[in-house]
Structures are given as C-alpha cells and as structure tokens.
Simulated scan of single mutants.
Amino acid sequence: MTQQKNPSPSAPSLARAWSRRAVLASGVATLAAPMVLRAQTPAKVIRIGSPDLGTAGKPSPGSSVLAVVQAHKWLEEEFEKDGIKVEWNFFRGAGPAVHEAVSAKQLDVISLGDLAAVIGRARGLPTRFITASGRGSNSYLATAPGVSIHTVADLKGKKVTVLKGTAYQRPFDNLLASAGLTEKDVKLINMDWPSSKAAVVAGQIDATFGGADLFLLKDKGVNIALSTKGRGPAYTINAGILATDDFLAQQPQLAQRLVRQLVRGAQWASQEKNRDALIKLYADNSGNPEVAFREELAGDSLGARFSPLLDDGFIAGYQGVQDDGLKLGLIRQGFDVKAWFQPALVQQAIKDLKLDKQWAETDATGKAKGAA
C-alpha cells in the first residue's frame, strides 16, 4: 500500500483563517483563498510508479533515464533538504497495474511505454506527458528449447505469450501483420514477464515476446529467433514520464525540480563516454545481464536514444501508436495527442542546466531537423 500525502487543512478552516486576515475581502476571494494556500503547501512525498522490469529480486524501471536517476539517487538528494520523501513503486502487472494505481490516486509520477501510456489516456486517466525517457527500443521473440521458428509466418498456430496492455503488444501485432497474420492466428496467452520466462524455459509455450531481458534465457537453451531491430518506427517502443494533473496543479515547483533531475539523467545517459558505465548501471540496477543491454544499444546513438525532448518526432510517434491502437482494436477512442504533451518543463530544465545544444530536435518523420 502506498503512503498517502498528509491531508490538507479543510476548506472551512482555511477560509476562517483568511477572513481573520482580510475582513473586507469579498466572498469570492474568501472561497478562492483555500485553493491558493493548498497549492502552495509542499508535498511530503512524491510517489513514483513504474512497471517492474527487474529480475532476481531487484525491482527496476528498466533501461530508461528513470533508472539512471534512481541508481544515482538524484531525486532523493534533490528533495531531502525539504524533508520530502521519494517513494518508488514497481508493478509486476506492468501498465494495467500502474493505471489502477493512478485511478486510485496512489501515484503522482509514472513511467510507461508508449502503448500503455496511450491506453491509459484514452481511457480517461488524468495525466500529462512531461519528458521522454527512452526512444526506439526493440523487442524480441524468444523460443523454447527445441522449437523451430525462423520467420514471422512460422508463428501461425504457435502458443505465444505477450503481456497485453504493454508497449510490446503493438510491435507484436504489427509483426504479425507483416506476414498477413493477426492475434487470432496464434494461440496468444496474456502472461506477465516472470511467468512467461519460466514457461518458455520449461517448454510450456512455444515462444514469448518481450524486451532485451530475454537474452538472460539463452544459457537455458532458449533461442532469440526474431527481433524488431531495423524494421522501422512501427516496430519500436518509446517511453516517457507522465505526471498526474493533480500533481502538476498542486506542486508545479516540485514538478519542475523533478524534471530537471530527469534531464540531468538524460544528459548523463547520452554521453558516449558513459556507454559502458550505463550498461553496467542497468545490469546492476535490474539484475539482468549486461549482454542484454549491450545488444539492445549496439549501433545506436545514445544521444538520439535518450533525448528528453518532447519534439515533433516524439509526438508523431505517439500519434502513430494511437492510430495503430485504434486500427488494431487496442483502444476504442482517440484523443488529442499533441495537447497531452507539456514540453515547457523540459524546455525550462534544459535552459537551467545550460544544455541547449545537447540534443537535436526531430521532425515529424523522426529525422533531426536540419539534416539532409
């Protein structure tokens, strides 16, 4: 159970306090005063939620900027002088479980992959997108020992697990579509990541689709048969950090300070000189092997992968996720994707940290602006 914020003073008591200070204030001012005072009351805890992408008893937000900030304890350092606790919550149920916690008002800030974030917003979750935390990550199909799958077409009739409602469902469905297949053409099982790993090792399923942590299973006879690497934007996954409307409205200064630390983490992760240290950090933080992260990041520009910018290319990627979600029946109704993003916090953080030239903005096609 997550720790709740200390309750604010009641509206009547605040109104009485205000009236003692300003007897001549109008009724409207008296009613507005409690809201202003409440907004200025700093939180006692910032509650962060993420799917659990760790293993071996190491809860982790995976290979994102958030993991860098968590490992360095930069948020704790930022807020401890104000007596504000940073509370980390990791969910084995991934996106759907994070959604439930947001609905119950148990979280302030969340980390999600693109499809999970879009599904939550399409269902009415009161969130705003405040910074990118990872771009263009890939997915992998791991097959059980002795199972022969070499092409996407070979998946027909096979027993495959995918954790539905997570960012992996979209590239999996697009992968099937590339061979003229749909989810109905495979024996699709909705299973969480730890269970699916155990099932594929035991040969209880033919294959499982997920992230680079599946490389952990290679020494158990599991084969990485397919990858989305190099297949284009429809097959990759973006990720970002969202905040609830309540948190942004009531704690704008804390939100800005939080984003500043996330941008600091993005700057550290973007440095090629930190590549080996980044891979080691991800492995130590998650319990997954270094080979998984080394394979995933091979050939990628770290600056492009970890740019925090909420630019045209990043937003267009989420528009594509919504479009695919509607087409594939993963969401029932759309929303204004561009209005969902709140880039001002990132822009201010970049200015504060003097990182104006650190990352190149991308256009709607995903190419760096000004590039030939």
Rank of each mutant, 00 (worst) to 15 (best):
F209W: 12
L112S: 02
L310R: 01
G313M: 03
R121L: 08
P96D: 11
D311G: 04
A25S: 10
T41M: 14
K351Y: 04
V263D: 02
T127P: 01
S63H: 11
L188N: 03
F172S: 00
A360T: 14
G136I: 07
K357G: 11
R231D: 15
S139H: 13
D352C: 02
A104G: 05
G287T: 05
Q358G: 12
A17D: 14
K44F: 14
A33R: 05
D219R: 09
R260K: 13
A298Y: 09
G211Y: 09
G334F: 08
R123Y: 05
A198M: 12
V28A: 15
S10A: 14
D312V: 05
V98N: 03
T244H: 06
A255K: 07
A122Y: 00
F247I: 02
D206N: 10
G366N: 10
V109R: 04
R305Y: 13
Q253M: 12
L262T: 09
N6F: 12
T208M: 07
E295D: 12
L53D: 01
D173Q: 10
R47G: 07
R231N: 14
L242G: 05
G83N: 02
L258S: 03
T143C: 05
Q347R: 05
W74S: 14
L328G: 04
E296A: 04
S8W: 15
L107S: 04
A179L: 09
V337I: 08
A249F: 06
V186D: 00
A368N: 07
I205F: 06
N89W: 08
S137N: 15
P9H: 12
P34I: 02
K327F: 03
G146P: 05
A349D: 02
S60Q: 08
D352K: 01
V201Q: 01
Q348A: 08
G136Q: 14
A339Q: 10
D173N: 11
L31C: 11
G334D: 07
T127A: 04
S103Q: 15
I119G: 07
L226N: 06
T151E: 03
I48R: 00
S10W: 09
L188I: 03
L163P: 15
D114T: 03
T365S: 15
R135W: 08
V291C: 12
T244A: 07
L297F: 08
A225S: 10
G93L: 07
